[in-house]
Design a protein around this nucleic acid. Structure first.
Length: 435
RNA sequence: GCGGUAGUGGUGAAGUGGUUAACACACCGGUUUGUGGUUCCGGCACGCGUGGGUUCGAUCCCCAUCUACCGCCCCA
């Protein structure tokens, strides 16, 4: 008798109808908005060759070193479940030769789908999580940096999130970064003993990450650190200035923060975060989007020297945010008509009735359990039915049925033949109800 | 990977080393009501995350394990 009870794997979730309807809404909002910006959807594999991610994210990032879901398949291939979206998109861009001259540049893409990271789950942070992201490939224009930021802001505002903060920074080009890296190390070295252990380890490997340490002492030290913005080469500086001009022109309220750094190593030039304040995501300001430019990545994957810029949004966190901020979200679908029947003989007619209603484009449901009328009314209420059609032995004999408006309680008797041909004339559209 | 808190029915939860594991909501059945949102009555955990152990006996004690939540790391 006692069968084994299964639990879903750690860090995964079952999205039940009450939730999935909200996800659909958010995804649909993204699709519509992104399409206004002329971004089209791309669907790449959920797993890729391990090296696709190892190559792009960089060896210093934890995403590669300890969070990757990787395994050998039966052909002894080293496979990894995608931990983020950009690498796969860039791989597809190169493999499908989308860099070719026949394709307009920038080549604008967005994606929606599951990502995987092996880490300790917390609310809004799953091992299988979902991201919506965009990538614009093949243009170095700073206008695109600004557009991508604007699009992220637009998206959140469309969803009804208002208290947003945009933080931007520039990492410059390779040369800028190397110069700065050395300067930063030189600055931090004398403070080595005061740094947190994590930061001490990062000092040589990836000193920029010391900048966004959460350790209070680290933050004190870092406050006096040189700014990367003072180390930008002329070209990088020019790009950075233009990005700001565009952002100003679009009226985007942003803040320059030299301590903003990104976790993945492929970023350069403009990087940004969109933050919001919500207790659902922790204390103070929390990041809901991160993104930036990654100009070397296409060539890293064997394509030509082509630029890229994009961002990714974590959907689990976004849903938590929308719920806690009481942003408008759809509830369960309303049922147009519930068909109740009483007596064995009416069963067939009820079956035909729901099909006929559906063929008019209305949603319809019925009782399948031969329950009493009262129970059927209860169910109709629970399903939020707008109308109910009841048919009993007597109605069947007369070839008619009762149509009841559940909101007003008004009931009318209608011939079956009439219902089958002119049902829409008896049904108010939901808009007319002024809900 | 590290630290902390928790795990009783569909849900919220009470509870004790020892006969039938409170209560509420939900649900189901009946009743009342003009065919629903009302009233009243009844039903609903052979089981207390899982596996071991201690004990005459454990949901309640011990160990392990799984999962969730919070913090760190990291990041979306």
């Amino acid at each position: 008798m006692a069968k084994q009870l299964f639990q879903k794997p750690k860090g995964t979730a079952d999205l039940l109808p009450a939730e999935s309807i909200k996800w659909h809404y958010v995804e649909e909002t993204a699709r519509l908005l992104f399409s206004d910006y002329q971004y089209a959807e791309v669907r790449t594999p959920i797993f890729e060759n391990f090296d696709v991610f190892a190559r792009s994210a960089g060896d210093t990032s934890d995403v590669v070193t300890k969070e990757m879901y990787d395994f050998k398949d039966k052909g002894d291939r080293h496979i990894a479940l995608r931990p983020e979206g950009t690498a796969g998109v860039v791989r597809a861009f190169v493999e499908n030769k989308l860099f070719g001259p026949e394709h307009a540049k920038p080549y604008k893409l967005f994606y929606v789908g599951p990502m995987f990271r092996y880490e300790r789950p917390q609310a809004g942070r799953m091992r299988q999580f979902h991201q919506i992201g965009v990538e614009a490939l093949g243009s170095e224009s700073p206008a695109l940096d600004a557009e991508v930021i604007a699009m992220a802001v637009d998206f959140f505002q469309t969803l009804g999130i208002t208290n947003l903060k945009v933080k931007v920074n520039s990492l410059g080009d390779k040369e800028s970064r190397e110069n700065y890296r050395q300067a930063l190390i030189d600055f931090l070295k004398p403070h080595f003993d005061e740094l947190s252990q994590d930061s001490q380890e990062r000092l040589e490997k990836n000193p920029l990450r010391v900048l966004d340490s959460k350790d209070a002492k680290d933050q004190e030290i870092v406050a006096d650190a040189p700014s990367i913005l003072d180390y930008l080469t002329e070209d990088a500086q020019s790009h950075w200035q233009k990005v700001q001009q565009y952002l100003d022109a679009l009226g985007i309220d942003y803040e320059i923060d030299e301590n903003v750094v990104r976790g993945l190593d492929y970023y350069n030039h403009t990087i940004f975060e969109v933050m919001t304040k919500s207790k659902a995501l922790g204390h103070g300001w929390s990041t809901i989007t991160g993104g930036g430019r990654y100009n070397g990545l296409v060539s890293e994957f064997g394509g030509p020297e082509m630029a890229g810029v994009g961002f990714g949004i974590g959907l689990e966190r976004l849903m938590l945010l929308l719920e806690s901020e009481n942003a408008p979200l759809p509830e369960k679908n309303k049922l147009d008509i519930y068909v109740a029947n009483q007596g064995q003989d009416t069963d067939i007619t009820a079956m035909q009735m729901v099909q006929a209603i559906r063929s008019f484009g209305y949603s319809a449901d019925r009782d399948y359990e031969d329950r009493k009328l009262k129970a059927q009314f209860k169910t109709a209420n629970r399903l939020n039915a707008r109308y109910m059609i009841t048919i009993g032995e007597r109605e069947l004999a007369e070839q008619s049925a009762h149509l009841k408006d559940m909101a007003t309680g008004k009931e009318t008797s209608i011939k079956l033949a009439e219902l089958y041909t002119n049902l829409p004339e008896y049904i108010k559209s939901p808009e007319d109800e002024g809900e």
